Amino acid sequence: MQFLFKIYQRITWLSIDVVLGAMAGMLFFAEALRVELAWQEYALLGMAVWCIYTADHLMDARKLTVEHAEDRHHFHLIYQKPLFILLAVVGVTGLIWAILFFGFSNELFFGAGLGLLILGIMLTVRKWASKQVRLKELSSAIFYVIGISWLPWYEAPSIEYSWTAVVLTILYMGLAYLNLIMLSSLDTESDQESGFSSIATLLTQEKLNPRIHQLAIALIAFTFLVLVVVNSLYRILPSLLLVMLLVHYLCFFKSSLKPEQIRMRMEIAFLIPAILLIL
């Protein structure tokens, strides 16, 4: 069991779980908007997400020494040169593939522009982290969901635009934000030791955790309400979202798991929409 845990730990350090979660999220929105995407679009999203997250981890790791780096940053600090090379290869390959697949179309320009915007926000957040730390998790959550949902929204005919799709998008942003502030709470000590800023380094645990609890309950209650009133054709989607929220709540508040185990379970929760492949 310990061997399997170590394997999955390496997968999380390489952000493979985040990539798969993002692809599952795109599938979620494709179902919500009743649009069928090509497998290449999922693959290109995965490559873009991996590049963004790996670049983020490498920028974090460069600020640290081996003695002050947690496991994830320690991995990126030690292997930063091969990871930089792999990042360049994946980035260039993804760009060429996107040009060949989309051509010089609106999809290509919007996707590339969104990627550059996200990178710019990452750099801005780092520069002003100590002053605008509350925006870090919120902006990350918003742009994460925009990144995985914009293509289904773009390719769906306007007749499929519905209040259900809008509400599910907002709830997914709420879930992403909940995930990030929960992770910030788990990483408080390591962030303080490493000199990183987050909402958890701004607020004490006594103030932050009750707010996390209130947000989680509010999201769960509202998602349940959507599940009750939504058209039966879409009921599976708020059901999956509700399960994802409950996994976060139970792992964070109702378990005696170690922080790393909680982190892994919450990241696995984002794979739940993949069940749509067999339904």
Rank of each mutant, 00 (worst) to 15 (best):
F104L: 14
S194A: 15
S158F: 02
R134I: 14
V133C: 00
L237M: 00
V166P: 12
L215D: 02
I99F: 10
L219F: 06
D191E: 02
M122V: 10
A200Q: 01
P157F: 15
M173F: 10
A200L: 03
T201K: 02
S130D: 15
I96S: 11
L237D: 00
S184A: 15
T204Y: 10
F222L: 12
S190N: 14
S190Q: 14
K127P: 05
L151C: 03
S232E: 12
W97E: 03
F224A: 14
A221K: 09
Q132L: 15
Y154K: 06
V230C: 01
L123Y: 09
L175S: 01
A156K: 08
Y172L: 10
L108K: 07
S198W: 06
E160T: 08
G174I: 02
S198F: 09
L123A: 11
Y177L: 13
K136W: 03
G147I: 01
S185D: 09
W128M: 03
F110P: 02
S184Q: 06
A218R: 03
W153Q: 02
K136D: 04
L186R: 05
F109P: 05
L117E: 09
L138T: 12
H213D: 12
L116R: 06
L119D: 01
L100E: 13
L225R: 00
M122E: 13
L186C: 13
V166T: 14
S194D: 13
I121C: 05
I212V: 15
S197Q: 08
G120H: 05
G113L: 08
V166A: 15
I118Y: 11
I236M: 06
Q214S: 13
V229K: 01
V133S: 12
M122D: 03
V228D: 00
T188W: 06
I159M: 02
A112G: 09
L186N: 04
V228P: 00
G195F: 10
I212N: 14
L219T: 02
S130M: 11
L233M: 09
P152I: 11
N209A: 10
S130F: 04
L180K: 08
S184C: 03
V166L: 15
E137G: 06
K207A: 13
K136N: 13
F104R: 07
A129T: 00
S140T: 15
S140M: 11
A165G: 06
F104D: 04
E137S: 14
F143A: 04
E155L: 13
G174R: 09
L215T: 03
F222S: 11
Q192P: 03
I217H: 08
E193M: 07
G111V: 10
I212E: 04
W128A: 12
V133E: 01
L116V: 14
E189Q: 12
S140R: 01
L171N: 01
